[in-house]
Design a binder for these strands. Structure first.
Length: 706
DNA sequence: GTTTAGGGTTAG
């Protein structure tokens, strides 16, 4: 038994849907038919019977089949005018590119090193120019003139392998060029080693056999070691401003901007690192899908196509896979944009074909598209959200991408806004475009924060002169005490009761002074002035004494220590004064009338302008549309639910801040893994060298108690 | 059995 598949000779004249049908031959007829027929031959069948095709569902051919089981059944085989592969292979001889002779007719194989999409020549035809090379390492320019665009070779990228039949070799400017001539044909193959060898051609008939496969394999192998292949790895996520690059993508939508410009909205499934240009198009002028959700996620590239490329762009259908060649990435200002705001990345396919500039659609099944398709498939969940009404779209627009379709991320996880602002949440890109002053709500993740050493986020701030400084480290403070204690002679003040003792080190005397008014009061009520102690000693002593004021003597008069050191030790807390705003020294302090000594009272008596403890953290926030640097400053204590001064003397509280920061930005985590947080942002301007600088501060935002 | 192009960045 033998099965043959035959097709209607002229499908256009066929009135039925199925133009191919199975024929079953039996016995001698099967054997004879097998020996005399070649693919492409015309057959004439008579006296068959018609039965249901059992393979209809599987092979999608005609639901019936023809069975040649009748004793009168016969078949005539008419050899086709098109020669079969077996007879044609020997006819083609391929000339190496270094052996081309002028004025000869040749067939060649080569690897494409450069090519241009077909462009209109000044004559009657479209022209394709390309450059090829082979193992001889000679490069030859080829020119193909042909009236019909669809008959031009299907070259997708540098590295493709092309076979040229019936080309004329000509000398031009000291080198040989190839031009198509009568009866010409071209076949191309992709240059990827070990990928299936599938001929691409628009020729009506072409010969292709085992010898061709071998030749393609040889050239692929050779080319792989020559680094001829163009870089097709530029994705939207890696594109940089001012680049020229080849870009493989899918067309989402298109719109005619004016007679000289078509907008193509495309994506490759990766997110651009820079904000992408948004081009406003009225919905009824946009052909294809609404890209709002993808725009929002910085996934949609807007390509403006001009001049000679309009012809190709006009015929493209949304959903098509495209490759742009030598596309230009440019930073552009949005109309009405303020000078300080970031520019947006747009893409231009300007006129001309230099460096191969152009675009073409790629057949959906080409192996060139495998990686693109696999990236796009990861975004399938997005599409469902685009078939929704405007209200939902608006919501998606204002929702960070990862929370789309993920219920568990829908609500704020770690922060809550405590303000009364009734503003709709906006994107960071919109924040940057806004005009200060302004309060707004955003949802973002923490990309980075400073200082990374969290103890450095504790600052000293003078509310009078607005000076801010770091908390001095222990070694600096210890040095001040050490210097002061050296060769110190205890001071002698009339108002103080003094007791002194020798330290273990020779020459250092430790003294303690208490106001005579306070003698006999319990120790926690007392204000004790200490002299000649080291930092360690004061620290030990301060465990049991609430108010220790370190002093030194100058000409037997009691003087404050340098204000780099704390002016007061109280339990584990240390209080600092502002060098600029404090009085130089204190004389005859008045201690009467003070019932309880706290840091305020001590500062007042000593003439010290006390510095406040504050938290200061700079966050880099990211919500995909943009990033901004926002300070956590005035509302930092509310944010953490921790007082800065308490944290200054308490390791547990410092650890709690570290824990919160590790939740917001888990160590070693990628941005995508970090929690979304809701922030109230205050946008304001600050004079900076006579220029107005826009600043962002996190206000009215608190960590949710876990 | 003619001609075209014969690579090398627009300027929106």
């Amino acid at each position: 038994m033998l099965r043959a598949e035959i097709r209607e000779e002229d499908p256009l004249q066929s009135t039925t849907e199925h133009t191919s049908i199975n024929v079953i031959f039996f016995d001698t007829l099967a054997k004879d038919f097998s020996q005399s027929v070649k693919q492409g031959d015309i057959v004439l069948l008579a006296n068959f019977t018609i039965s249901k095709s059992p393979t209809f569902l599987r092979d999608k051919l005609h639901p019936c089949q023809l069975e040649m089981d009748n004793k009168d059944a016969c078949v005539y085989v008419c050899p086709s005018a098109i020669p079969g592969p077996s007879s044609s292979e020997a006819k083609y001889v391929y000339v190496p590119l270094n052996k081309l002779k002028s004025k000869t007719l040749v067939n060649v194989y080569g690897v494409v090193t450069f090519f241009k999409q077909p462009f209109p020549s000044k004559g009657s035809d479209y022209c394709t120019t390309l450059k090829i090379t082979d193992q001889s390492d000679v490069k030859v320019i080829c020119t193909i003139f042909c009236k019909k665009l669809e008959d031009h070779p299907l070259i997708f990228r540098v590295g493709d392998i092309i076979r040229l039949h019936r080309f004329k070799a000509e000398a031009f400017r000291d080198s040989i060029t190839l031009i198509n001539t009568f009866g010409w044909s071209t076949v191309t193959f992709n240059g990827i080693i070990d990928s299936p060898i599938v001929p691409r051609t628009s020729s009506k008939s072409f010969f292709y056999g085992e010898a061709d496969k071998r030749r393609v394999q040889e050239l692929r192998q050779w080319a792989a070691n020559q680094s001829l292949c163009s870089d097709l790895n530029t994705s939207l996520s890696s594109v940089q401003p001012h680049m020229y690059f080849d870009f493989t993508c899918q067309l989402l939508a298109k719109a005619v901007m004016h007679s000289g410009c078509i907008l193509l909205k495309v994506w490759d499934g990766t997110r651009c690192q820079l904000p992408l240009l948004q081009v406003a198009v009225p919905p009824d002028e946009l052909e294809g899908e609404c890209t709002l959700a993808k725009d929002k996620m910085n996934l949609t590239a807007n390509v403006l196509v001009y001049d000679n490329h309009l012809e190709v762009a006009r015929d493209l259908k949304p959903g098509a896979f495209l490759r742009f060649y030598n596309l230009r990435a440019l930073l552009q200002k949005v109309p009405g944009q303020l000078p300080d705001q970031p520019e947006h990345l747009g893409f231009h396919l300007h006129g001309g074909t230099v460096y191969g500039r152009g675009l073409r659609s790629l057949p959906a099944e080409t192996p060139d598209l495998l990686s693109l398709k696999s990236v796009l498939e990861k975004h399938v969940d997005l599409d469902e959200h685009e078939e929704v009404n405007d209200g939902t779209l608006l919501e998606i627009w204002y929702t960070p991408p990862e929370s789309i379709g993920a219920e568990e991320n829908a609500g704020p996880a770690y922060t809550v806004q405590t303000c009364e602002h009734n503003t709709q949440r906006i994107t960071l890109a919109q924040v940057k475009r806004s005009t200060p002053p302004l309060s707004c709500h955003v949802r973002a993740r923490v990309k980075k924060y400073l200082p990374q050493q969290l103890y450095q986020c504790l600052k000293l701030f003078c509310s009078k002169c607005k000076t801010m400084k770091d908390v001095p480290d222990d070694s600096a403070v210890a040095n001040i005490f050490l210097e002061s204690a050296r060769d110190n002679q205890p001071c002698d003040e009339q108002w103080a009761a003094t007791s002194s003792a020798n330290s273990r080190e020779p020459g250092r005397t430790i003294s303690m002074h208490v106001s005579k008014d306070m003698v006999g009061k319990s120790s926690h009520m007392q204000l004790i002035f200490i002299e000649g102690m080291t930092l360690d000693e004061i620290s030990v002593l301060s465990r049991d004494h609430k108010n220790l004021v370190p002093v030194r003597s100058e000409n037997s008069k009691m003087t404050r220590m340098d204000l780099t050191a704390p002016f007061l030790f109280s339990g584990k807390k240390r209080y600092y004064g502002c060098k600029q705003c404090s009085r130089n020294t204190f004389e005859n302090p008045v201690f009467t009338g003070v019932e309880t000594w706290d840091e305020q009272a001590v500062a007042a008596v000593l003439g010290v302008q006390m510095m406040q403890y504050r938290f200061l953290i700079q966050f880099e926030l990211d919500d995909v549309t943009d990033t901004i640097e926002a300070l956590l400053w005035e509302d930092a204590e509310r944010f953490f639910h921790i007082s800065a001064v308490d944290a200054s003397g308490c390791q547990d509280l410092q650890d709690r801040i570290q824990t919160i920061m590790d939740t917001i930005q888990p160590p070693e985590s990628s941005l995508e893994e970090r929690p979304w947080m809701d922030f109230c942002l205050s946008v304001y301007t600050v004079k900076d060298n006579d220029r107005n600088k826009v600043c962002y501060q996190i206000t009215n935002t608190e960590i949710v108690k876990q």
